[in-house]
Design a protein around this nucleic acid. Structure first.
Ligand SMILES: [Mn+2]
Ligand SMILES: [Mn+2]
Ligand SMILES: [Mn+2]
Ligand SMILES: [Mn+2]
Lengths: 223, 223
DNA sequence: CTTCCAATTTTGACTAATCAAAGTATACTG
DNA sequence: CAGTATACTTTGATTAGTCAAAATTGGAAG
C-alpha cells in the first residue's frame, strides 16, 4: 500500500497538472504545494520514480505515470466521496470538509468507499462541484466556461468552485454563489478588472462585483 | 498531536489493563498486542514515559498516567463511534467494522466526531455492546455476568461481545447470539466445559453448546 | 562570449518507528 | 543455594520522511 505521504504527492502532482497544462510540474511548484523544502521534494520524487509512479527529468520536473495517475485518481475519489458524506450525511459545513477529507482519504478501505458511494447514490460531483472519478479511474472531462468568460445577460448555472479555502467558501455561501445557483453576468469592465452580476434567486435584486480572478473560480453552464 | 502509533499503544495498554486487573502490563504482553518485537515495545514505552503518558518500571511493566488514560479514552471513543456509524449508516457488516475503525479512528477531528455523535443520537454502546466513553472521558462501569456465570433457566439479554475477531462475529451472527438477543442457559457441565443454551427468539427451539471460554465472551443482564 | 541568478540538486544530519541479535536480570527448579 | 530458562533490555542497524545549507546548472542579460 502506498503511504499517506506518497498518496498526497501523487494527488498534488495530478491536481497541479490540471491547471498548468504543461506536461511537467517543476520541483519548486511541487515543493510549495506539499509545503516541504525543494530538496525534500526532489528526494521524494526520485523515490516515486524508482517505484514507477512518476516520470522525473532533472531540472525539468515530474509527471505522473499511468500507474501514478491511477493511484492519484483513487485518492481523489476517496477525497471527494468523503467530502460529500461529511456534507450530506454528517451535515458539516462545506467550507470545512476539504481539510477533514484530507486526512480521512488515507484511512478508508475499498469496502467503506463502496458503502459511501452506494449510500450517496453514485454521485458524480462533490460539494464544490469537483467531479468524482469512477471506481475504474475515469473522470468525465468538463468543458465549462466561468463567470469571467461566459456570455453577458444570460442566465447560467454555477456548477463548480475552483477553491477550497474555508474563508472564501464561507463568502461564497454568504453571497448565494454556491453550486446550482443561477446567476446572470451583467457587465464586465476589463480595465477595472470587475465583473458585475446578479443572483437570480436573490429577490432583493442586489448586484455583486467580483474581480476577474475571483470570477474565474466559478465554473458555469447553461441552466 | 499524538501520532497514530502512540494512540495505538495507549489504547492497547488501556484495553489490556481492563482484563488483567493488575496495575502493570508486562512488556511481552504489550509487544504481542502491538505485534512488534519486545525491544520495540520497550523503546516505545520509554518514549511514552518521557512524554508523561505512562508510568514505566523496568521488568515490571507499564501503566497509563492520568494524561495517557485520557488520550486512550478519546481514541476509544472515536473507534466505537466510527464502528457504529459504519454499521448503522453505511450498513457495513458488524464483523468487519473493527478493522476499518482501527484506521479511521486516527483520521477524524473533534468536529467530525461530534457530528457522528449527534447523528447517532449520543449512543452509549457500539455494535458489539462496548461502552462509548463520553466526550469528557468517562466510561460507565458495567458489572455484567456472562453466559458462563449467569443463573440457569432464566432468560437473560446479551449486551456485549468481548471479541472482535471477524470469523467469530460471523458465527455469533449466524447463531443469533447478537446483542439484544434473549437467551436462557439450560445446563452447565463443568467437567466437559460445556454450556447448553436456548435462544428465545429462535422458534425452532434448537439448543447451542458453547465451551466455557466462549460462553464467557457473552456478557448478559436481566432482560 | 562571459557573468550572474534563480531554481534545483546534493550532502549531511535528524526524528520516529521498527527489527535482529546480544546481553542481563528475575524467577523457577532441583 | 546454584544453575538455568524466560522475560526483558540494550545495542546497532534500517527505512521513511524531513530540513538546512552547500554545490551545481541552465539560461538570461549584458
Ligand atoms: Mn491527504
Ligand atoms: Mn472538493
Ligand atoms: Mn488504530
Ligand atoms: Mn467494538
Amino acid at each position: 500500500m502506498a503511504s499517506k505521504t506518497i498518496e498526497n504527492y501523487l494527488k498534488q502532482i495530478y491536481l497541479a497538472r490540471q491547471e498548468s497544462r504543461g506536461k511537467f510540474i517543476p520541483m519548486g511548484r511541487l515543493a510549495n504545494l506539499m509545503e516541504v523544502t525543494p530538496g525534500t521534494a526532489t528526494t521524494m520524487v526520485k523515490a516515486l520514480a524508482d517505484a514507477h509512479l512518476v516520470g522525473y527529468e532533472p531540472r525539468r520536473g515530474v509527471k505522473l505515470s499511468r500507474a501514478g495517475e491511477h493511484l492519484a485518481l483513487h485518492v481523489l475519489r476517496r477525497h471527494r466521496l468523503v467530502e460529500l458524506l461529511l456534507v450530506r450525511v454528517l451535515k458539516l459545513d462545506w467550507s470545512q470538509v476539504h481539510e477533514e477529507a484530507e486526512e480521512i482519504e488515507h484511512a478508508i478501505s475499498e469496502r467503506v468507499l463502496e458503502a459511501i458511494d452506494r449510500l450517496l447514490g453514485r454521485p458524480v460531483a462533490d460539494p464544490h462541484g469537483d467531479p468524482i472519478p469512477t471506481a475504474g479511474g475515469k473522470v468525465h472531462p468538463q468543458r465549462f466556461t466561468s463567470l469571467a468568460t461566459c456570455p453577458l445577460d444570460r442566465p447560467v448555472r454555477i456548477v463548480r468552485i475552483l477553491d477550497q479555502e474555508p474563508n472564501f467558501l464561507r463568502f461564497v455561501d454568504q453571497c448565494g454563489l454556491t453550486p446550482q445557483a443561477i446567476v446572470r453576468v451583467q457587465q464586465r469592465d476589463p480595465l477595472a478588472d470587475a465583473v458585475r452580476l446578479r443572483i437570480a434567486t436573490d429577490k432583493s435584486a442586489r448586484c455583486r462585483i467580483l474581480s476577474g480572478g475571483v470570477a474565474a473560480r466559478f465554473l458555469v453552464r447553461d441552466p
